[in-house]
Amino acid sequence: MEETITNLLETYFTTEAEFQDCFVVDVNHSNKKLEVFVDSDSGMTFAKCQRISRYLESYLDEAKPLGEEYVLDVSSPGVDRPLKFYRQYLKNVGRTLEVTTTEGETYTGVLKAATPTEVTLEAKQRVQDGKRKKTVVEDINIASDAIKKSIVKISF
């Protein structure tokens, strides 16, 4: 089901000019509930989510893969969901991220740059300076394939 919905939306996004910068982040299906998380390089709006939802409803009502009754939720991923794609990192340059590596290390810092192969965080680190510790700001490069989880940290 997840693959079918993803393929359906990717085709829709390539044929509709308004949605050409949109991409599927995640699709979750359980019982009669379908959750679809979509993002856009130019930012997701309520109107875009609504049009995508109506498009999916027409498919679900006609093909009935979930039966007669179902719950459909189409939304943007939100800041509490981990970043999954390079495009999401590009949108979040300048924001604070918490990155956990596959080796279990956690880094928190401002995302300075992102490439398809690595991200660069500007992070404050405590280092030993003689008998005292001092705080230094340094760039930390993390290979994309070494990232287990990245979450945008909200500061108030």
Rank of each mutant, 00 (worst) to 15 (best):
113 A>R: 10
134 K>D: 05
114 A>P: 15
48 K>L: 04
57 E>L: 01
16 E>L: 09
129 D>F: 03
7 N>P: 00
73 D>M: 10
138 E>D: 05
1 M>F: 02
25 V>G: 03
72 L>S: 15
99 V>Q: 13
76 S>F: 01
86 Y>V: 00
69 E>N: 14
133 K>C: 10
34 L>M: 04
142 I>Q: 03
96 T>I: 15
1 M>L: 10
120 T>G: 06
54 R>E: 14
59 Y>D: 14
65 P>V: 01
9 L>N: 10
56 L>H: 11
49 C>P: 09
136 V>I: 14
2 E>P: 11
26 D>L: 06
121 L>I: 08
91 K>R: 10
38 V>N: 00
65 P>H: 05
2 E>R: 13
15 T>S: 09
11 T>S: 07
50 Q>V: 08
122 E>M: 15
103 E>T: 14
36 V>S: 11
17 A>K: 10
12 Y>M: 04
23 F>T: 03
151 I>A: 10
11 T>P: 00
153 K>D: 01
118 E>K: 02
97 L>I: 06
51 R>M: 06
96 T>A: 08
142 I>V: 15
58 S>V: 08
137 V>M: 12
74 V>Y: 15
89 Y>T: 01
77 P>D: 05
150 S>R: 02
134 K>C: 04
73 D>P: 00
139 D>Q: 12
87 R>L: 10
34 L>P: 01
47 A>Q: 13
15 T>C: 01
22 C>Q: 00
81 R>V: 09
20 Q>G: 04
108 T>L: 02
123 A>R: 13
20 Q>V: 09
141 N>W: 06
147 I>W: 07
29 H>A: 14
130 G>I: 14
78 G>R: 12
72 L>Y: 12
145 D>H: 11
97 L>R: 07
98 E>A: 13
85 F>M: 11
20 Q>L: 00
96 T>P: 12
83 L>R: 12
74 V>C: 02
18 E>M: 12
118 E>H: 09
25 V>I: 11
87 R>F: 04
149 K>W: 03
149 K>E: 13
102 T>W: 06
132 R>C: 03
5 I>Q: 06
140 I>N: 00
100 T>L: 06
80 D>K: 10
130 G>R: 04
7 N>C: 00
8 L>W: 14
149 K>A: 04
149 K>T: 12
56 L>E: 03
89 Y>G: 00
42 S>D: 01
61 D>Q: 08
40 S>I: 07
32 K>S: 11
110 V>W: 08
52 I>M: 02
33 K>S: 13
66 L>M: 14
136 V>Q: 07
1 M>P: 04
105 E>F: 08
57 E>S: 11
142 I>C: 08
61 D>A: 07
69 E>R: 12
57 E>P: 12
110 V>Q: 11
39 D>P: 07
131 K>Q: 14
118 E>A: 08
59 Y>G: 01
